[in-house]
Amino acid sequence: MSLTASLTDRLPVVPALEALLLGASSRRPLGTNVFDREWDLLIVLDTCRYDALCRLASEYTFVDDVNSLYSLGSSTREWAANTFTQQYREPIAETAVVCSNAQVTRTLEAGNAMESPLAQRFTAWDTVDPDAFHAFDSVSDYAPMDPFGGRPSPNS
């Protein structure tokens, strides 16, 4: 057994790294908050790849402009925690959200308790809860679930 293998078997490397990265992100998020941009209707396609959307845009008449910007998180939880913050409470109060990703709802409901106990020691999220929105519809609360993926079925 190598020295590296024996150290990583005994040390919580991944949880410690997660705690440090989330701690940094909760204090100084990198990227653009959607509330810093002008929009009347915003559709966020979670896990939608920019390069794929660019290739397919010409096939759909309603897609007339494809832009990209850096996200506030590399996961849905991190993005939601960095996007829906107390700093944007006023525009959030005027925003209606329809969300089928249960991670967004869980993140907002958990506030600062969304990650492991180790990560919680380093993070300082300042999220609003779902009641802060003009309307917050968590589709995952009532939609039939996809039996294979644990998320709302696209057929519902």
Rank of each mutant, 00 (worst) to 15 (best):
G149W: 15
E94F: 08
N33Q: 05
V34S: 04
R106I: 04
R151P: 07
A102Y: 13
N82H: 05
R55C: 12
R89D: 06
R55H: 10
L7V: 10
F133W: 07
T95I: 00
F136C: 02
M1I: 11
P144E: 14
P29T: 01
D40R: 07
Q87A: 13
S153C: 12
L53C: 03
A143L: 11
A19Y: 00
P91G: 07
N101Y: 08
D137Y: 15
A80C: 07
A102I: 12
E94V: 03
S2Q: 11
L69K: 08
S116M: 05
E38D: 15
S153W: 06
R37K: 15
R28P: 06
V139W: 03
P154T: 05
A119V: 03
S74T: 13
A119I: 01
L108M: 04
P152W: 07
S100G: 06
C54G: 02
E90M: 14
S138E: 14
P144S: 10
E90P: 09
S58E: 09
S100E: 05
V97M: 01
L17E: 09
A110D: 08
C99M: 07
L7Q: 09
D131K: 14
G150I: 10
N112C: 13
Y50E: 12
A113S: 14
T4M: 05
M1N: 09
T32I: 15
Q120I: 04
E90Y: 11
G23H: 00
P144N: 11
H134M: 06
P152F: 12
F122Q: 00
L45I: 12
M114L: 14
P91L: 07
S58W: 05
L118N: 02
D40A: 04
S58T: 05
A102H: 14
S156R: 10
W79S: 04
A93T: 09
P154H: 06
L118D: 01
F133Y: 05
P29F: 01
P130M: 01
A93P: 02
L41C: 13
N101R: 09
Y60T: 10
D131V: 12
R49P: 12
T85Q: 06
S138R: 13
C99A: 15
G31D: 07
D46C: 02
S2G: 15
A135D: 11
G73W: 01
L118P: 01
V34I: 15
A16M: 09
G73V: 03
W79F: 11
T105L: 15
D9E: 13
P15L: 03
Q120F: 01
N33K: 08
L30H: 15
D126P: 02
F133R: 04
N67D: 13
A80W: 02
Y88F: 14
E18H: 03
R151S: 14
M1E: 09
